[in-house]
Amino acid sequence: MQETTILRTSDLAKELGVHVNTIRLYEASGFLSPVPRGSNGYRCYSPIHLEQARLTHLVLRWPYVGDKQPLIALVQSAANGDPGMAMEFAYQYMAQIRVERTYAESALEFLERWAAGHTMDISSHPMRIREAAAHLNVSVDMLRNWERNGLLTVPRDPANEYRLYGSTEFGRLRVIRMLVRCGFSLMAILQMLQQIDSGNTNNLRDALNVSHDTKFVAVIADRWLTSLLELEQRTQQIIAQIGRMIEMFYQQ
């Protein structure tokens, strides 16, 4: 494609597999550099606009990790003629994803240790729910929510039916708390715990991936570790795309 090529809105939309209104939205949002108009009033896109639109489509496609604003700043930097800044944002985003992966991997190692039968908590006496919440530094509502969602069953005091949390419950709760804090969904955790409760402690990482019947995954946390790996791969594509755009700027 020659640098003098003039492209229409429909050309960009067809190349990216999106509606023409999506391309117009990219332009209105400042994700493309200013687009000149022909004598007939039609937009005259260049190959650089196509690459900017390609970058936008790649960067802002759901899902993504954390705040969307740095990703918006990334594509706007490229549109404003500063692909170097866009590259910095891309590597910052890569670092963020890798931090999330580190947290997730640590949580999985904690899980595997517990599943192997190692004691994870020593409590001198059974605790009621408020004392248990303070012991774990979580809220009472969180403990009730996890129980309500089937993540654990808490034994009751036969004298008064109050919940009594012992070392067995605390070990399980520490695993649940760490997985939740590291981004895994309650559905994924429940599926994994059900597998453990059935006596199967193999492939627990796979058990944390909730299968869906449709291509649209409503909860990214249902496939958290897999999603992080996919996002890291996409970020590599983003970096490569910015690299191509930098080469195009030098060829002008």
Rank of each mutant, 00 (worst) to 15 (best):
E147C: 04
Q76A: 13
E27T: 10
W62S: 14
I239Q: 07
Y64Q: 09
H212D: 03
I48W: 08
E15N: 09
H118R: 12
N202K: 14
V35N: 06
T168P: 00
A134P: 02
L225W: 03
H125V: 08
A73K: 11
Y162Q: 03
Q251K: 11
L173S: 03
A116K: 12
R128S: 04
R223H: 01
V210A: 00
R205D: 01
T153F: 05
G243K: 10
Q251C: 09
Q252M: 15
S211G: 07
Q96L: 14
S77D: 14
Y42R: 13
A221M: 02
R234P: 02
A79G: 09
L136H: 07
Q76R: 15
G150R: 10
R172I: 00
E109S: 13
G81W: 03
Q237D: 08
C44Q: 15
I23G: 04
A188I: 01
A78M: 12
G84P: 02
Q233M: 13
L71A: 14
I72K: 12
R54N: 08
V65E: 12
T153L: 12
V180G: 01
I196P: 02
L143N: 04
L228H: 02
M245G: 03
R234E: 03
F249S: 10
F216M: 05
Q236Y: 13
P36N: 10
I176Q: 02
G84F: 11
L60Y: 06
R181P: 02
V65M: 08
R113L: 10
Q236T: 15
L55I: 09
T168D: 14
M187V: 10
A53W: 03
M187T: 12
D141H: 05
P83M: 07
Q241C: 15
S227Y: 01
A159V: 06
W146L: 03
S39C: 05
A188Y: 01
L225M: 11
N149R: 09
R174K: 13
I6K: 15
E230G: 03
E51W: 03
M127K: 06
N149E: 10
R174E: 05
Q96K: 13
A107C: 06
E88A: 05
I48Y: 11
T226K: 05
P155F: 00
Q52I: 05
Y45L: 11
V210N: 01
S139V: 04
C182D: 09
K68W: 04
D141L: 01
M192Y: 02
L179P: 02
S185M: 09
Q2Y: 11
S77Q: 10
Y250N: 06
H19D: 15
P155E: 03
E105R: 13
D141C: 01
S139C: 04
T214A: 07
L164E: 00
G243W: 09
R130K: 15
L60F: 11
T226N: 05
D222W: 00
